[in-house]
Simulated assay, not measured.
Amino acid sequence: MDHTFTTDGAQWLHEPSWRVEGDELVVDAVEGSDLWRHTSYGFVRDTAHALLRPVAVGQACEVDVHASMSEQFDQAGLLLRVDEERWLKAGLERADGRLGLGVVMTDGRSDWSTAPVDDWAGTWVRVRVSVAADSVTVRARPEGGAWQLVRLVPFATSGAALAGPYCAAPSRSGWTARFRALATTSADDALH
Score class of each variant (00 low, 15 high):
143 E>Q: 11
81 R>Y: 02
186 S>I: 09
97 G>D: 10
159 G>A: 06
92 L>E: 01
123 T>L: 12
174 G>T: 03
61 C>K: 01
71 E>V: 09
66 H>M: 15
122 G>K: 15
186 S>R: 15
72 Q>L: 14
77 G>V: 02
1 M>K: 11
64 D>E: 14
52 L>A: 09
20 V>P: 04
109 R>P: 01
174 G>A: 06
32 G>T: 08
160 A>W: 01
27 V>D: 00
67 A>T: 02
183 A>T: 04
181 A>G: 12
57 V>C: 02
21 E>M: 09
187 A>T: 10
38 H>G: 04
85 E>T: 12
109 R>E: 12
167 C>H: 07
179 F>E: 02
184 T>K: 12
18 W>G: 02
124 W>L: 03
144 G>D: 00
146 A>L: 12
95 A>D: 15
123 T>N: 15
172 R>G: 08
9 G>Q: 13
62 E>N: 05
82 V>F: 00
153 V>A: 15
120 W>N: 13
5 F>P: 02
140 A>Q: 04
57 V>Q: 00
51 L>T: 04
166 Y>W: 14
31 E>T: 05
142 P>W: 00
135 S>I: 00
28 D>M: 09
170 P>C: 08
113 S>V: 11
47 T>A: 14
51 L>K: 03
132 A>L: 12
104 V>W: 05
121 A>Q: 09
24 E>V: 11
89 K>I: 07
33 S>L: 06
16 P>T: 06
174 G>N: 08
2 D>R: 10
18 W>E: 08
114 T>Y: 05
47 T>L: 08
19 R>E: 10
93 E>F: 10
145 G>F: 06
74 D>H: 12
175 W>F: 15
122 G>Q: 11
97 G>T: 11
140 A>L: 09
8 D>R: 04
53 R>K: 14
5 F>Q: 07
41 Y>F: 13
25 L>F: 11
5 F>K: 11
21 E>S: 13
116 P>I: 10
35 L>D: 03
109 R>G: 00
154 P>R: 15
96 D>N: 14
60 A>Y: 03
140 A>M: 12
39 T>A: 14
91 G>T: 11
45 R>S: 13
25 L>E: 05
166 Y>R: 00
128 R>Y: 08
121 A>E: 13
49 H>E: 11
104 V>T: 13
130 S>T: 07
66 H>L: 15
6 T>V: 07
133 A>W: 08
66 H>D: 05
181 A>Q: 10
8 D>M: 08
30 V>D: 14
59 Q>A: 12
105 M>E: 09
95 A>H: 10
128 R>C: 10
97 G>S: 11
44 V>L: 11
157 T>I: 14
4 T>E: 06
181 A>Y: 00
80 L>P: 01
62 E>C: 12
51 L>W: 02
81 R>G: 04
62 E>I: 01
43 F>S: 11
156 A>W: 09
150 V>G: 03
116 P>K: 12
151 R>W: 03
63 V>G: 00
